[in-house]
Amino acid sequence: MWPWGHLAVAYLLYTIYTHRRDGRRPRTGPLIVLTIGSQFPDLIDKPLAWSFGVLPAGRTFSHSVFVAALLLPTVALLAYRVDRPAIGPAFAIGQLSHLLSDIPPSVLLSQDFSATTFLFWPVLEPPAYHSPDSLLDGFLRYSMGWYEGVQLGLVLVALIVWYHDGTPGLGAVRRRLEYIGSTVAGD
């Protein structure tokens, strides 16, 4: 799945979580952490595999449930210690939704689970799939198929839900951009 698809899935799951658990819309701080969590496995694995050749594939180390089993409680503990408990679930939803949405749809249709071995790296070898020569190569070889169309549909649904939620986080981004603009302009 592409970054925007991961973010869309994470946002949709997180907004359901916050509405059901707290009866309110998502807030800015946890949304920032959710965004990071939704991209975290690829931010680690893709460069280490595609650009530096340290990992055997772009879905290994931080796509592993073993890393998640150590990382998620650590993030939750740190969030609790800095008195920001909402950050733990936000990161967990982002991270776990990333792992689950990287499972190819064909797994569900064919019940052939061999494409899920990346979740159990290094105990199991990751499935063989085309690895670009670099991050840039990965984006340059992007092609549009039915699966990418579904991802764009999810992005559209997530944008509608985000708008319905009152565009949480947008005000903080605007303020930050205004601050940067005034700093650059020398105001």
Score class of each variant (00 low, 15 high):
residue 177 L to F: 04
residue 36 I to M: 08
residue 61 F to Y: 07
residue 64 S to W: 00
residue 129 Y to F: 11
residue 161 V to Q: 07
residue 3 P to R: 14
residue 124 L to P: 10
residue 145 G to S: 04
residue 95 Q to E: 14
residue 50 W to P: 11
residue 44 I to Q: 03
residue 10 A to I: 04
residue 131 S to Y: 15
residue 127 P to M: 00
residue 181 G to C: 03
residue 85 P to W: 03
residue 145 G to N: 10
residue 109 L to H: 14
residue 123 V to W: 04
residue 108 L to S: 06
residue 64 S to P: 04
residue 45 D to K: 01
residue 158 A to F: 10
residue 91 F to Q: 00
residue 46 K to R: 02
residue 182 S to K: 12
residue 70 L to S: 09
residue 16 I to T: 15
residue 150 V to Q: 13
residue 156 L to G: 14
residue 167 T to W: 14
residue 42 D to C: 01
residue 153 G to K: 06
residue 53 G to V: 05
residue 133 D to P: 13
residue 183 T to M: 12
residue 9 V to L: 11
residue 136 L to G: 06
residue 159 L to E: 12
residue 148 E to V: 08
residue 136 L to W: 09
residue 42 D to M: 04
residue 49 A to E: 01
residue 92 A to R: 01
residue 178 E to S: 02
residue 31 L to I: 01
residue 111 Q to K: 14
residue 110 S to H: 12
residue 183 T to Y: 08
residue 7 L to H: 06
residue 123 V to G: 03
residue 60 T to K: 03
residue 19 H to E: 14
residue 123 V to R: 07
residue 128 A to S: 12
residue 108 L to N: 11
residue 38 S to E: 04
residue 178 E to P: 03
residue 120 F to R: 08
residue 48 L to K: 04
residue 152 L to H: 13
residue 127 P to G: 00
residue 45 D to Y: 11
residue 80 Y to V: 15
residue 33 V to G: 00
residue 33 V to N: 00
residue 22 D to M: 14
residue 9 V to G: 07
residue 112 D to T: 09
residue 52 F to K: 07
residue 29 G to P: 10
residue 128 A to Q: 13
residue 95 Q to K: 09
residue 124 L to K: 07
residue 39 Q to N: 11
residue 86 A to Q: 12
residue 134 S to W: 00
residue 46 K to F: 01
residue 186 G to Y: 03
residue 29 G to N: 12
residue 95 Q to T: 13
residue 151 Q to K: 15
residue 49 A to G: 03
residue 57 A to H: 09
residue 67 V to S: 12
residue 15 T to L: 06
residue 47 P to I: 03
residue 113 F to P: 12
residue 13 L to E: 05
residue 61 F to T: 10
residue 47 P to C: 05
residue 36 I to L: 06
residue 124 L to M: 06
residue 71 L to S: 09
residue 22 D to G: 13
residue 5 G to S: 05
residue 44 I to M: 05
residue 49 A to C: 02
residue 31 L to A: 00
residue 139 F to S: 08
residue 145 G to T: 12
residue 106 S to A: 15
residue 69 A to W: 13
residue 100 L to T: 10
residue 2 W to P: 11
residue 82 V to D: 12
residue 158 A to H: 09
residue 70 L to V: 09
residue 85 P to H: 04
residue 29 G to I: 05
residue 29 G to Y: 05
residue 162 W to D: 02
residue 90 A to E: 02
residue 122 P to L: 04
residue 71 L to E: 02
residue 77 L to N: 08
residue 82 V to L: 05
residue 174 R to K: 06
residue 58 G to N: 02
residue 60 T to N: 06
residue 76 A to F: 06
residue 51 S to Q: 13
residue 111 Q to T: 15
residue 13 L to S: 11
residue 27 R to S: 06
residue 108 L to M: 12
residue 79 A to S: 05
residue 89 P to I: 08
residue 29 G to R: 09
residue 5 G to Y: 01
residue 163 Y to F: 15
residue 6 H to C: 03
residue 149 G to M: 03
residue 29 G to V: 07
residue 123 V to E: 02
residue 154 L to V: 06
residue 166 G to Q: 02
residue 107 V to A: 04
residue 125 E to K: 15
residue 176 R to I: 07
residue 153 G to F: 09
residue 35 T to V: 11
residue 71 L to Y: 07
residue 16 I to M: 15
residue 44 I to T: 04
residue 159 L to V: 14
residue 120 F to P: 00
residue 114 S to K: 06
residue 13 L to P: 00
